[in-house]
Structure formats: C-alpha cells, structure tokens
Design a binder for these strands. Sequence first.
DNA 1: GTGTACGTTAATGTATACATTAATTTTTGG
DNA 2: CCAAAAATTAATGTATACATTAACGTACAC
Lengths: 226, 226
Amino acid sequence: MLKDTTSENLPLAEIAYRAIREEILNNQFKAGEQVLEKALVERFGISRTPVREACVRLEKEGLIEIKPRHGIRVKPISVEDMAEIYDILTALESEAARILAEKQLTEDDYQTLVAPTAAMEQALANDQLEAWAEADEAFHLALVNLTGNQRLKQVVLQFWGQAHRVRYFTLHLRPKPTGSTQDHIDLVNAIKAGNANLAAEIHRNHRIKGKHTLLNLLETYRFVQL
Amino acid sequence: MLKDTTSENLPLAEIAYRAIREEILNNQFKAGEQVLEKALVERFGISRTPVREACVRLEKEGLIEIKPRHGIRVKPISVEDMAEIYDILTALESEAARILAEKQLTEDDYQTLVAPTAAMEQALANDQLEAWAEADEAFHLALVNLTGNQRLKQVVLQFWGQAHRVRYFTLHLRPKPTGSTQDHIDLVNAIKAGNANLAAEIHRNHRIKGKHTLLNLLETYRFVQL
DNA sequence: GTGTACGTTAATGTATACATTAATTTTTGG
DNA sequence: CCAAAAATTAATGTATACATTAACGTACAC
C-alpha cells in the first residue's frame, strides 16, 4: 500500500514549528511583530508545550527572539544583518564551488546546476521574476548540495531562511538580474575545468555583486522594517 | 550593591543546557552515549520540561540527537564529520581574515591577535600543550570576533563546539604544532598590510594543513569513538 | 495635578498528570 | 522447544496545573 506522505502523523511541535517558520519566511508573520504564546496556542488549537518547543527551535535558528512576558518577536533584518548574512553565504558558497571543482561530478550532477540556470534564463526572458528567484535558489541549493557536506548545506539554508523575505521584498525593485545567468554558466565551466581557484573566485564575485545591489537597494528603503 | 553574577538566577532550562553542553564538550558525557530524559531529570533534580528544552537546543546545535524512546545520544564525530567541520571553518575563518585585512584595526585589536600568538609560542617552548591549545583557540576566536560579524562568530563557535573534544583527543598525539605560530604571524602581517587575498590564502593554507594533520591522525584511531 | 506605593493581572517558567505507543515480556498453540 | 500473538511496561509527546513575578492600573499622599 502507498504510504500517504501528505496526511501528517508528525509531532505537534514539528507541525507548529513548520507552520510558524513558513509564515515568517513568506512574510505573513512580519518582522518586528510580536505575538504571545497564548495566541499561538489558540491559533493552532494545541497546548503550550509543543508551541514552546517550536519557539525554542525557531530562536536557535535565528528567526525569532523569545521576549519573556512579551511573547515571541520576528527578528527584523537590518542592512547590517543582511551584510553579515551575505558575507557568510559568500564564504560558504564559494567554498562549495571550490569543492565541486576538485570533485568528480557525474553528468546528472551537472544537470542539477545547468537546469536551474536554463530555467533562470527562460524566466528572465518571460519577465517572470518569481520563477527566476526560484530557479536561482535551486541553483544555489544544488551548489551546496553537491558538495555532500551536510553541515555546510544546513548552515547555508539557515541563513538563506533569514534572508528569504528580504530577497523577496527586493525582487521587484532591483534591476533585472541579467548578469546572473552568465555568472552561473561561467561557474559551471570553471567547475567542469577543475579550476578550483577560478570557480571560487567567480562565485565570490557573483555574491559580492549581489550583496552590493541588495545593500544599495536596502539603503534606499531603510525606513521599511524587514 | 554589587550584583552577584555567580549566584545563578538563571532559568532551569538554561542551567541544564549549559551543564549538559559542558559535559559533552569536555568528554565526560561521551560520544555515542545515550541517556534517558528520566536520568537527566533525576541528576539535576528538576522536572522534565526544562530538561526537554535544553535537549531541543542541544539538538539544534548539532551536539546530540533526540532518539524517541531511547533518550538523547551524544553525536559521535567521524573522520568525515571532522572533514565537513574543517571545510566550513576554513571557509569562514579565511573570510574573516579577508574582512580584517580590508578593515581598519586599532592597535588594541591587533593585540587580541598578537597576544595569543605570543602565548602559543611560550606554551610550546614549555611543552604545555593544553595552554597552547587554549591560546590557539583564543587566536581563532579573536579572528572571527574582530570582524564584528556576530553570525559568523556564532557559526564558527558552533562548529568549534562540535569539534572540541576531538581536537582535545588528538592534542597529545599530533606532532608538536611548531608551524602554527609562524602561520599566525604571517597572517597578522598580511592583515596589517591590508592584503586581503593574501590573508585569506594564508589562513586557508593554515587550516588545510591542520585538517590534513588531524584527519591522518584520526584515520589511525578510526576504532576510537569520538 | 503628580508621583509613589500598593494591589491586581496576566504571561511565563516549571511541575505534574495523562495519553500514546514502541519495546519487551508473557502466554499460547503447534 | 519454538514462533506468533497477546499483555505489559516504560518512555515520550502532550495537556494542564501551579508558582512566580513583571507590567499595569489604582488609589492615596502631598
């Protein structure tokens, strides 16, 4: 019999964790917003125990802070926070690029990088920014995924999570990301050529460009709480 | 009146968290060892709730895994795990080196790097490996600390925590770390000279050396559970 | 009218009670 | 004596009860 993976048999704490996390990522639960445990309890119709566990996990993940007597608060991301996050992603992803260049990748492996790149190009041609962002995300995920370093992947995903709603906010404000596709193509070529230093360098520059674009944009919208 | 910072007014969950963490780091609570919630509850004389919270936090931190029905288990660190950790530290710390080279550091800032280096040399001359390790740790901590990037620091500390007991295990087995001091001096000089690429490169190579020494050693002791 | 002390409220930290179910033991049929 | 089923145990996930105390409001002194 088929196992129904959709019908959830998950612990309530896990369900609450995912639900809250999801709302933070897509900005339904907004930056700076505070909510009491009680409100979460009532919203989910579960008891305080699993709600608290979910909150503890989210705090460790850097998405919220627990403010005794004032509930939990979605951590706002400042320009400085975003700079911190980008520096970390730059370091880890360019390390990933380096690692891949030193590795033997299969043709399938390359496809997980090439396919998103193609999707990005396609989306850009059709002015579908959301689709572009999704494909870009897939590319960067593939990059760290292929290293096989689970911890590296986890950390990148963690900070990706913190930055997610900010990236989404800027998506329609930034210039069309026309250069990104070429950077990705160059990176894949460097990896194929086994040129680790070049691969790392290309991706570093790619990320630095992205960081500057983003930070400049955020300076303009400094008054918006993200 | 003086605030007594030693007398603990901390939440029980925090106390339990710190206590368990401490025991894992110094290898009293050994790799692979399992212990039931009940045992922790009895040991600390507190209820299950704060113990559970401590466990959830430690799991997020990568130090333990929660095995339903079997309590918690200190995650053993394999050679492969250590390789993962070193690759991350290499990426983040050499990024830190790069950042510092691009920054204006005060004389005091430099001292937080130079002093541990001197302490390392001293300790090495006196064959005090523990003191050497402590100073080395101080140097690496200063490196990430001076970047001002709190997230970067947190991640480095997290993986440092995972690797801590392994490093301690190998401390007396490895060859005397005579080259480390020079690497650190070279790094500080590159930072002072504002040569970001060189600084990153020096630290990268330093870490790669360390990684190889460590992994070779661990291969020899593959049968030991860390 | 204003500031302070007091009392009240309510949110959380912690303990405990309860429900569920994996694991183990016992029983039973062969 | 062995294997499968049934009963029991025990560890956890969850709910709830209780204790503490920060935050707030009120009243009172001046």
